[in-house]
Deep mutational scan, measured.
Amino acid sequence: GATAVSEWTEYKTADGKTLYYNNRTLESTWEKPQELK
């Protein structure tokens, strides 16, 4: 079967924080998503 690919993209901001963006739900979060833990 196909492996579930994470929908989350990780961005590094200018101040060194990490922003997570979900390509499916168009949601963005500063918290690390469950799927990435």
Rank of each mutant, 00 (worst) to 15 (best):
T29K: 06
G16Q: 02
N23P: 06
E35L: 05
Y21Q: 07
S6M: 10
Y20K: 00
D15E: 08
E31W: 04
E7W: 05
A14R: 08
S28D: 03
E7L: 05
E7I: 07
K12S: 07
K32I: 10
A2Y: 09
T25S: 03
L36E: 08
E27Q: 08
S28I: 15
W8D: 01
T13W: 06
W8T: 01
W8N: 01
K37S: 13
A14D: 09
N22V: 00
S6P: 12
Y11I: 15
T25N: 02
K37Q: 14
L26Q: 15
L26P: 01
Y11S: 06
A14I: 10
R24A: 12
L26Y: 11
K32V: 11
Y21F: 14
D15V: 02
Y11C: 15
R24Q: 12
Y20L: 00
S6F: 08
E35F: 08
K12C: 12
L19S: 03
T25W: 01
R24V: 15
K17V: 04
T9W: 07
K12T: 14
T9A: 06
K12E: 10
W8Q: 00
A14M: 08
V5H: 14
E27W: 00
K12Q: 11
K12R: 12
S28K: 12
A2D: 12
S28P: 02
Y21S: 02
W30V: 07
Y21D: 03
L19F: 15
E31K: 04
S6Y: 07
A4G: 14
A4N: 14
L36Y: 10
Y11M: 11
A14Q: 10
T9E: 11
Y20I: 00
T18F: 06
E27P: 00
Y11N: 04
T13R: 03
K37T: 13
L19Q: 05
E27L: 04
S6N: 11
T3I: 12
T25F: 01
N23G: 06
E31H: 07
P33E: 01
K17N: 06
N22H: 03
T25G: 01
T25K: 00
S6H: 10
T29V: 10
Q34A: 15
E31C: 13
E7N: 06
Y11P: 00
K12A: 08
R24H: 13
N22A: 00
L26W: 06
P33A: 01
D15G: 06
K32D: 04
W30G: 06
N22D: 03
K37N: 14
N23H: 12
G1S: 12
T29Y: 09
W8A: 01
P33F: 02
Y20D: 03
S28M: 15
K32F: 04
W8F: 01
K32M: 09
D15H: 04
E10K: 03
N23D: 06
L36K: 07
N22E: 03
V5S: 13
G16S: 01
G16A: 01
E27F: 02
Y20A: 00
E31G: 03
V5F: 13
P33V: 01
G1N: 13
